[in-house]
Design a binder for these strands. Structure first.
Lengths: 131, 131
DNA sequence: CAATTGATGTAATAACATTACATTTCAATT
DNA sequence: AATTGAAATGTAATGTTATTACATCAATTG
């Protein structure tokens, strides 16, 4: 998956996220793209939906914000469950993948015949630099 | 922690959540408490804040909703990280605790000197009954 | 009983997200 | 090149979730 396959709006949104230090809300993205012609929230949300689908962006459920994937070239969907640490002081987000956690969650779900869709793992706290 | 220590508003909100089949949004709780004198969202949010603090209620970040704790008598905070399955069809929420996952997350955080605050683990999907 | 603290009431506003509908773009096929 | 169908876009309006600000009330305590 490369940037070339993206539409103009999708590319603009991904570009903003990729160059951002930390996660951004949809409305912050909108503001940053006013000069590029964006006028309405839906333009951002639609682009984000696609980028999420492509695995190029992640949504942080606990803070209603979005970040570019840390390794978009490999296709993040291939890495299984994505987990995050989110620094509440500086906003820094670190993405990680842990197969033990993933196996454990999968086995819990399987034991109960729960069909897993999307899984959210987010640790909010204070990063090393801000401690 | 018993219900007796709660204020009127806190007790009313907890009661609504305890008797609900599934998670409720703050505004749904508000509607259910209009007859009890609730008029504004803040009355709900304030009560929820305290109930969350007491470990009597959980917030489901991925669906912006709240559920009563499955074992409030023991004080849910004592159980460490709480994880959930959330059925997107019927709304049923199951709460669980897994020490392996918890240890794994803690060790990840410790390795990076990340000071853990609240951790969110939510699996959305389809429960056995709805499959 | 004054002072402090925590809880409450109310209105207004901010922040986040979706619905609805009209229009345009673009690639695949004719 | 014209047709056409799917995907993307533009725009306005609205719906949903959460917070700020400020006034008041109630319980505790020094």
């Amino acid at each position: 998956m490369t940037t070339q396959t993206l539409t103009r709006n999708q590319g603009l949104v991904l570009d903003v996220l990729s160059h951002s230090e930390g996660p951004l809300s949809a409305y912050t993205i909108l503001d940053k793209l006013r000069d590029s012609g964006f006028r309405a929230p839906l333009q951002v949300y639609r682009a984000l939906d696609k980028l999420l689908e492509f695995g190029l962006v992640h949504r942080l459920e606990s803070i209603n914000a979005f970040v570019a994937c840390a390794h978009p070239d490999e296709g993040c969907h291939a890495h299984g469950i994505t987990a995050f640490t989110i620094c509440e002081t500086c906003g820094k987000v670190t993405e990680f993948h842990d197969h033990v956690i993933e196996d454990r969650l999968k086995s819990f779900a399987k034991d109960r015949n729960f069909k897993t869709g999307k899984t959210t793992i987010e640790i909010r706290g204070t990063c090393a630099g801000c401690a």
